[in-house]
Simulated scan of single mutants.
Amino acid sequence: MYPESHRSPPARIVAVGLMGSAWVFILVLQIARGDQVFPASLGIVALALWILQVALTRRASRTFVWLAWVMIVLGAFAGPATSVIGAIPAISGMLVLTRDSQIPIKRGTAGLCLGILGLALGALGDKADVVSSIGCLAGLLLVFLFGLLRRQSDAVEAAERASLEDRLAAAQERARSAAVEERTAIARDLHDVLAHSLGGLTIQLDALSAELESGKYEAAIARSVQARTLASSGLEEARRAVAALREPMADLDHGIESNIKAHRDMGGSVTVDLEPTQDLSSQANGVFSRGLQEFLTNARRYAPGETAHVRLARDDAHYRLSVSTPRTLRVQTSTGGGFGLQGVRERAEAIGGRLTIDDGNPFVATVEVPHD
């Protein structure tokens, strides 16, 4: 079955009807003069079929193709004896068979063979004109080749449109992925900035409340000063994050120093064992700084009062930053856990590193990144 398509537009139906009617009138005059009655009659039939095909059938339908074949045979037969006028529907039928990409090319080839056969039979008539016969043959061949070229051109245009649609779809997908990545990065940075500072502030305020209830007013005053300092520090860090994270990350030593100072200011205890870093990229620097921040926050939360051990070492391929603490409280520690560790993992994996958790005693969190 041939695929269904729309009927011919009204303007084309009217144009074909007017032209066909004019040529039918010319052929009727030939018949009235008794000149080439049989070929002229076949030409009229072919013209009538052409009008019928355009007006009543759907393009590329089975009826459409069969009418085109009959038009080609009858028109080719009538052409040599009617000064090519009878061959006009044959040429039209040949064009639509080869031009329309919905019609298999073998149908157009079959139409060309039928046209040559009808033309040969028409050329054998007593009053067939040699020049008209050659003109009809040339017309069929030229229209056949022209139809093939247009079909190929349509195929190229369709392929280009499909390629353009694919590129647009790929660009939209890249934009969507970039937006998702950007939202993920913003979520990580908000967590890094707000969760840690607000979490530390909560601890300070809880301690302040306990000291006030115990009547330790001097300690409470000192604790309130620490809470205010922590709030100011968090506000300043938030401002830096809102600045779109465009400024380069500070050097690793400064990042480790600031994180350790913040940990101690909030009552934590920590020891440090660092190897020199010389070829650490800014991305790796950011991973280590955020990783250390997250690890020390977890140490304060899940092992309060215990000493955290920070160690930075390297081998031939990687730098490794690890924080170990005695396990004093059972918590969820799967690698798909909270947003903090998840953010550290995403940062590390983005530059070819990884995050590992040893859920033993001591509890050890390690982030490693490749070095140049």
Rank of each mutant, 00 (worst) to 15 (best):
E4D: 11
H6F: 15
R7A: 14
R7C: 15
R12V: 15
A15M: 08
G17E: 11
L18E: 07
W23H: 01
F25K: 06
F25M: 14
I26Q: 14
A32T: 03
D35P: 01
V37Y: 00
L42S: 09
I44V: 14
I44L: 12
A46Q: 10
A48V: 09
L49M: 11
R58W: 11
R58C: 13
F64P: 04
G75W: 08
A76D: 09
G79C: 05
G79W: 12
G79N: 08
P80C: 06
P80T: 12
A81T: 11
G86H: 03
S92M: 13
R99N: 13
S101V: 05
S101Y: 06
P104F: 02
I105V: 11
R107G: 03
C113M: 13
L114S: 06
L114F: 10
L119W: 07
G122R: 04
A128K: 04
V131C: 03
I134A: 15
G139D: 02
L141E: 04
L142F: 14
L145E: 15
L145V: 15
G147Q: 08
L148M: 10
R150G: 12
Q152G: 09
D154F: 14
A155C: 06
A158E: 07
R161T: 13
S163W: 08
L164E: 15
L164N: 08
E165T: 01
D166V: 07
A169E: 11
Q172P: 02
A175W: 02
A178E: 14
A178Y: 09
V180G: 00
E182A: 15
A185I: 01
A187P: 03
L190M: 11
D192T: 07
A195T: 12
H196M: 02
S197W: 08
T202E: 15
D206W: 03
L208F: 12
S209W: 01
E211N: 12
E211M: 15
E218S: 13
A220C: 07
A220Q: 08
I221S: 13
I221K: 14
V225T: 15
Q226H: 06
S233W: 07
G234D: 04
E237V: 00
R240T: 12
A241I: 09
A244G: 13
A250H: 02
D251W: 02
D251G: 05
D253Y: 08
I256M: 10
I260E: 10
I260K: 03
I260G: 01
A262G: 14
D265F: 05
S269P: 03
T271D: 15
L274D: 00
P276M: 08
S281H: 04
G286M: 12
V287M: 08
V287A: 07
F288K: 06
S289H: 08
S289F: 01
R290W: 01
L292K: 02
F295C: 05
N298Q: 15
N298C: 06
A299E: 03
Y302M: 02
Y302Q: 05
Y302C: 04
A303L: 02
A308R: 00
H309G: 00
A313F: 03
Y319W: 02
S322D: 04
S324W: 04
S324P: 00
P326L: 07
R327T: 09
R327D: 13
T333E: 09
T335W: 03
T335I: 05
G338K: 02
Q342I: 02
V344G: 03
V344K: 00
A348F: 07
E349C: 03
D358A: 12
G360W: 09
F363S: 09
V364Y: 10
E368H: 04
